[in-house]
Each structure stands twice: as C-alpha cells, then as structure tokens.
C-alpha cells in the first residue's frame, strides 16, 4: 500500500505541474495580447495629442501624453508578467499583433487607407500569431495528456 502511494505520488505531481504549465501558458498568451492592446491605445492617445496641439511645448503639457506614458508603463509591466508565465519563443512573436491593432486603428479611427499589401500583411500576421498561440497551448495540453497516461500506468503497475 505504502509502496503504491510512493509510486503514484510523483505522477500526480507531474500532472499538477503540467496542469500548471498549461494554465500558465494560456495566461501568458492572454497577457501579451492585452499588452499589445495597451500599446495600440497609446498610439491613439499620442495621435490625438499630436493632432490637437500647435507646438511641441504644449504637447509636453498635454494630459493625454501623460496618460500615454502611464499606459505604456502598464503595458510593459503586463509584458514582464506574461513572460513570467509563458515561453519566450511563443510570447515574443505574439507582440507583433501590435502592428495589426495599430493598422486597424488607422483605418477605423483616422480614415487612413490600407493597401492590398497591407491587408495581406495583416492577415498573414494574424495567421502566424494564431498558429503560435494555438500550438503553444496545445503543446501544453499534450504534455498534460502524457502526464495523465503515466498516472494510469503507475496505477496499473
């Protein structure tokens, strides 16, 4: 009985660790996406601030500029927390979502035009980010399944 328990325990620990890593990776991806949204928000703030001030001096005292700095800092902190939760090789490329948000803002809020190349580029980036996000979470899932199987074999043994 006690021998069985000692054999089972590492497997259960393994499973918990894999569970944690999967949840962690998911949280990491989510946090990076939110941080790119914050970066996109700072671009709106900066664009409005630049548009409504006549001189650089006035721009420096614009509360929108201060807000942009605060949001930038918050985005940076979120990125650090995201990195803590997930893998660098998965999370870093996801930052390129920022291009997509900023391009969409340009079109939706500031009447900018997007060339066919730009549209193709945005769709390609979305495809790449989705691929990385999806497979990195699935990889964690697979790890979890393997841990489940090893628990089963340990139980059978």
């Amino acid at each position: 009985m006690s021998a069985k328990r000692t054999r089972n325990k590492p497997a259960a620990d393994d499973r918990r660790r894999e569970d944690d890593s999967r949840r962690s990776q998911r949280r990491g991806v989510l946090l990076v996406v939110i941080s790119t949204l914050l970066v996109a928000l700072t671009h709106i703030l900066l664009k409005v601030a630049v548009g409504r001030s006549d001189s650089v001096m006035l721009l420096l005292f614009d509360p929108l500029l201060v807000a942009a700095l605060i949001v930038t800092f918050a985005g940076g902190m979120l990125l650090v927390y995201a990195l803590k939760h997930g893998e660098l090789s998965a999370l870093y490329p996801i930052i390129s979502l920022g291009f997509v948000w900023v391009a969409l803002e340009g079109v939706l809020l500031f009447d900018e035009k997007l060339s066919p190349f730009g549209i193709a580029g945005i769709l390609t980036i979305i495809a790449g980010v989705s691929l990385i996000g999806h497979t990195s979470m699935r990889q964690a899932d697979r790890g979890r399944k393997k841990a489940h199987n090893s628990t089963d074999t340990a139980r059978r043994a």
Binding site: E87, L88, S89, A90, P93, S96, F99, A103, L114, S115, P116, F117, G118, A120, G121, I122, L123, T124, I125, I126, A127, G128, V129, S130, L131, I132, T135, S136, Q139
Partner: peptide, 30 residues
Amino acid sequence: ARRYLGERVDSWRWTGIGLIIVGITLISVG
C-alpha cells in the same frame, strides 16, 4: 530560448514566426 531556457521550438512555432516576418514585410512593402 531553445538553447538556454530548454524551450521546445517545434516546426509550428517556426512556421508562425515565418508567417509573421512575411506579414511585416508585406505591410512595409505596401
């Protein structure tokens, strides 16, 4: 990350990175 953090960079991830680079190139060309 692969060398020093022991991350497994599978071919899906490389493909995703490749797509992102192509996408950024397309936007710049546009």
